[in-house]
Design a protein around this nucleic acid. Structure first.
Length: 428
RNA sequence: GUGAGUGUAGCUCAAGUGGUUAGAGCACCAGGUUGUGAUCCUGGGGGUUGGGGGUUCGAGUCCCCUCACUCACCCCA
């Protein structure tokens, strides 16, 4: 019997595990310096919890099971319902704004593709209790901060921003009735996937004539820079009804991330869920899926039985992020922990002294390794030391002398150092 | 879940229209008689060709099923 990992799941060998930690460490580091606190919840929840947010249709897209007490449970496909449940339960005692992050593994019963697996890790940033556009801007800033932390730049990455209410006003201006709004958003989301003639046809059903369709389509395809809402006004004829977008625009500039962002009215995201700002983080070549997506969801906490609580946040998966970084030349093997020193012995006398020297180094916090090979051939041992990517090799002298030869494996320089100075030397 | 493509060693790939015991490089392991590491020699382990069934004297190669990956749909919470 031979087994492989189930469809859409991954095995994490040391190299992959180091890479995964590299990403999750960055998520943690960036979250914390932006003032977010880490939370987590159970990896499975009541199936009903997910139905409340997403409806009956969600059941076919997650993994669910029945426990021995006939409870219907589901492995978490997202974290937001857990978060909403947690916030709703203690909302009155939590200081506002609530700024939480987590890095859960999530499972979805989808057909896997590049950047899309059945089990993955997702960074969640959520800011609750403020309806100010500052909160929207800060969330976007956190996403940008992460990109920057991992060495990506604003030429490679763009945050594409839209706003539900603004698009609604534009659609309304073009003559779409309120009860047709949901269908209009659906059409906007799907416009690249349907034939142009069909698009015009469907738009006509919403009350738009071909001329308006053309104008609206163009307004949605154009990317507006931050600070140029005047262009957006001109293209859409929306006038002064920009609302929060106006304020968001100023905050994005004040946070210094204007060049990372652009307005893209074609960004739609989940229909039933978001209420205001929506955004996606993209790699500009378009070769990968969205790195992250999020927005404002002011009605969710109430839906879960809590007080009316405005909220904004985003999720970022590890799969696309990883693809983008690897596309840009990052090598997962470079994230493996490297030894500070590789201790080796070229003779039997030295070999007897090796364990105590290694043990002492490790007690002092030094990452120290040694060879399991029986050979005393220093050439082979040095090759192993170099392969481990240790910074130093420490060659124990065969006699009882108090020095070891410390060799810098990058430069090749070598010098005798007293054994009691070894740990401080290699930790410098 | 629907449709299409792909699948040979840990990795990258070979094996004319079916034809002996499926090969190579890299990687891994071990030696090269007594102390200094890149592209030095020598040797070794590792494959039921993703798995199962069928056609055939004979299948890595043809057919069916299944599993996984890739792409589109769906969805993107």
């Amino acid at each position: 019997m031979k087994f492989q990992a189930p469809r859409g799941t991954r095995d994490f060998y040391p190299k992959q595990m180091a890479w995964r930690n590299h990403l999750i460490d960055a998520w943690r580091r960036v979250s914390i310096r932006n003032g977010f606190e880490q939370v987590d919840g159970p990896i499975f929840e009541s199936l009903d919890l997910y139905k409340v947010k997403s409806g009956e249709g969600i059941v076919g897209e997650l993994f669910h099971f029945e426990d021995r007490g006939e409870r219907q449970l589901a492995i978490r496909p997202e974290f937001t319902p857990t978060l909403a449940r947690m916030v709703a339960a203690q909302a009155s005692s939590l200081p506002k704004p609530i700024k939480w992050f987590c890095t859960p593994n999530l499972c979805r019963a989808e057909r896997p593709q590049r950047g899309r697996l059945r089990e993955f890790f997702q960074w969640n940033i959520d800011l609750l209790g403020s309806d100010s556009p500052v909160a929207d801007a800060e969330c976007i800033f956190v996403a940008v901060d992460l990109m920057r932390d991992l060495g990506l730049d604003s030429q490679t990455i763009k945050v594409r921003i839209s706003h539900r209410e603004t698009v609604r006003h534009i659609l309304s201006k073009f003559g779409v009735a309120d009860d047709m709004m949901l269908r209009a958003f659906e059409l906007l989301d799907r416009r690249d996937k349907i034939e142009p003639e069909r698009f015009v046809e469907l738009a006509a059903e919403l009350g738009l004539d071909p001329n308006q369709v053309e104008r609206f389509d163009q307004a949605c395809r154009y990317k507006y820079p931050i600070g140029r809402l005047d262009q957006l006004r001109e293209h859409t004829g929306i006038g002064d009804q920009l609302g929060d977008l106006e304020s968001l625009d100023a905050h994005l500039t004040d946070f210094g991330i204007a060049d990372w962002c652009e307005y893209d009215l074609g960004i739609v995201r989940g229909l039933a869920y978001y209420t205001g700002t929506v955004f996606e983080v993209h790699e500009v070549s378009g070769a990968e899926r969205a790195l992250a997506g999020g927005g404002r969801y002011d009605r969710l906490i109430k839906l879960f039985g809590g007080p009316d609580t405005p909220a904004v946040g985003f999720g970022m998966g590890d799969t696309v992020l990883s693809n983008v970084l690897v596309d840009r030349g990052a090598l997962p093997e470079d994230t493996l922990p490297k030894p500070d020193v590789f201790v080796l012995a070229g003779g039997d006398d030295a070999a007897r002294r090796l364990p105590s020297i290694v043990a002492d180094l490790r007690q002092r916090g030094v990452h120290a390794r040694f060879s399991y090979r029986p050979t005393r051939n220093l050439g082979k041992l040095l090759k192993e030391a170099a392969a481990s990517q240790a910074r130093y090799a420490a060659i124990i002298n065969g006699d009882t002398s108090n020095t070891v030869a410390l060799k810098d494996l990058a430069s090749g320089e070598q010098a005798d150092v007293p054994i009691d100075e070894l740990s401080s030397r290699v930790l410098q």
